[in-house]
Amino acid sequence: MKRVHPIAFGLLILAAGAWGGLALAEPTVPTGMVLIHGGTFKPMFRSTADFKEVEVKPFCLDQLPVTNEEFLRFVQANPRWQRSAVKRLFAGATYLKHWAGDLELGPEAPPRAPVTFVSWFAAKAYAQWAGKRLPTTAEWELTAAAGYTNANGELDAEFRRDLLAWYSSAMQPLNHVGSGRTNFWGVSDLHGLVWEWVADFNTSMVTGDARGDTGLDRQLFCGSGSLGARDVSDYAAFMRYGFRSSLKADYCVHNLGFRCAKDL
């Protein structure tokens, strides 16, 4: 018998609860955002002192990553975040390096492509300016765990195949946002386009030497699920955790963008 994934199980219960609540009062979801009903998130890595599960309350998440066009409006409104003006402490030397100028996108930064070469500080400042915030790892991962047709992507073979293909193919020129399929929640491009900043990116329990990290949480591998049950979608999560752990808040990377979240 196939084990029901704990996340999926939690999700089903919570989703059911949330739907029940919906009938009573429809929350307001801003334009361009999607309501995520929340659920229980089990971190991929955690120390013994960390919570085994994180409860994720319902929240709103941008349907799409922030684009060059949108980020341009932000730097127009906030000159101190323009490329030539930004403080090095808050954004490294590669900040918006693919733009043609301070206020000019140019050929390497199509307006509808996701903005990249942005630091965590810049992403956070953008979110504040937009009246939003960056999603937490738990929120992001919970949303990204959904497949095309199922809140638990592990049960969605087509989703899993696409996910794996992206992780094991070379980096391609960036598509416009929204060119990928939307997932179960109605969110696009969580996979297959760019990595995304999260608010607590540096809490990933991956040290520089990832091999010691499995020792941080043996039970995640041996107790709560057998090793054989760890499958490709978990491996993809591994890679995301690995990626986040390699970052510093001033880093600006060619394939790293962000999207915003908002409390209900």
């Binding site: 590669t94 040290t207 520089g208 030497d209 990832a210 091999r211 010691g212 990626f243 752990s245 390699s246 970052l247 510093k248 880093y251 600006c252 990377v253 060619h254 394939n255 790293l256």
Partner: peptide
């Protein structure tokens, strides 16, 4: 040394 250098060489793309 720890990690054979791995602990000191974790590097994001472009770094």
């Amino acid at each position: 040394g720890p990690g054979g250098g791995a602990t000191s060489s974790f590097t994001a793309p472009g770094y």
